[in-house]
Design a protein around this nucleic acid. Structure first.
Lengths: 238, 238
DNA sequence: ACCTGAACACCGTTCAAGT
DNA sequence: ACCTGAACACCGTTCAAGT
């Protein structure tokens, strides 16, 4: 591996190499430890050398986002819009599980990169091909929101923070102390039921994949119903 | 106002004052310009003085989050769970519009503060009182995710970044250049339709409140249907 | 012309010196 | 015992000096 490091150091720096090293660094030790200085050190290069391939740190983040989005499977050709959308979103989710820092990075950048625009464009295209009006497709895209890129949208997402400590597995769940359970009885009731199933507690006892698909199907079923009813927006003119 | 600043400086420092000054600073100039040093300066105090009321910056953020969550209206007493949930979430949304930095702060902290736990507990209680099983209430809470706190969950949320530049109104939208429209025809089609309605472009031409309620009602209607059907989880035992 | 070390203007937080 | 200035270990980025 010293040899590999040597090879990496020897290879000429390029935007491509910078971006992939940055993604690897964020995957490995968390986004909060991604600094221009750390990245340069990983690449065996002086910090200022990065600035020839990347204008600044924001542009680095944009590039990293495009690398991640580029890993999402292409759309499956399918006559059934629902299946096509479902498959692509589940693929996006698998990609995000490899890059748990990506959702927060995407949200904090708040600018559509070319790769994200291409992804959204294809998704809208799938709805339109499935017979959706421009109007309905528009609102449906808003309603799915970040879930369309595979975001879990959980308030507290253990996976997202996994990279924080550099650990691959999240901390073993701290059992809910009795006085907390007394103050929040409904939360405790759910945590208890979940831990009964899985010998764990809230957030840990939940099957992330089940929860994601439950929410996704709830949305897709609702959307299908609107489309079949020939929904049109009843926006008040102004 | 020099007088007011003087009064503020004279008042003894307290955790309460520190937190409210931090919220005001984040509201005014954006969360990225909230530093311990800037906050101390606003309070007319030396930076180290803050550390007697707040252990560190993470705890400051937790406290700020609790201030914001505390501004959400209490649950309306209502026999109809759907109306009660809807009203409380719309109240949460109004609060977040006053504090556009809060969603990102909450997501980046990834720890339930007492105020958030109390909010979630009350929400679960509303579902349970409406006849939901523990099981269904659990999955429904996951499916709503961060929307339950009024998050728009939009991929690109103009409001969230509004505090960035300190401007109250977002930048006037840059019109989509023709070559971008050609590369992303479906996005362009939607942007065109939206701008036809509102003389604006994608993201700007959308009625945020309409999109939020559209998504919320899509979820609530789907949830109501599950509850009426007596849905139970078909989780495979292991 | 290109590259890069030093410097600048920041951070959060520690710590020891001052009262 | 409390308070706080200086210091430490970081940032992203500028800029001028070196090749």
């Amino acid at each position: 591996m010293a040899e590999q490091a040597e090879t990496l150091r020897r290879a000429p720096l390029s935007r491509e190499r910078v971006l992939h090293a940055a993604v690897a660094l964020a995957d490995g030790t968390g986004i909060e430890s991604l600094s221009m200085r750390n990245l340069a050190q990983d690449l065996g290069v002086v910090p200022m050398a990065l600035y020839k391939h990347v204008a600044n740190k924001d542009e680095l983040l944009d590039g990293m986002i495009d690398v991640v989005v580029g890993e999402i499977d292409p759309p499956v050709p399918d006559a059934d819009w629902k299946h096509a959308v479902r498959q692509r979103i589940l693929s996006a989710r698998r990609v995000l599980q490899r890059h748990p820092w990506a959702p927060l990075a995407i949200e904090s950048r708040n600018m559509a990169t070319p790769a994200i625009l291409a992804y959204l464009d294809a998704m809208i295209g799938t709805f339109r091909a499935g017979g959706f009006s421009v109007d309905l497709a528009h609102h449906v895209m808003h309603a799915m929101g970040s879930r369309i890129l595979g975001f879990s949208q959980e308030l507290f997402d253990a996976a997202r923070q996994a990279g924080r400590s550099g650990a691959t597995t999240p901390d073993p769940p701290a059992a809910m102390p009795p006085e907390v359970a007394a103050r929040f009885p409904h939360v405790a009731e759910i945590a208890m039921a979940a831990s009964h199933d899985d010998a764990s507690v809230l957030g840990q006892g939940c099957d992330d994949q089940f929860e994601f698909e439950f929410a996704l199907d709830l949305l897709l079923d609702g959307i299908e119903r609107l489309q079949q009813q020939g929904w049109t927006s009843a926006r008040r003119p102004r």
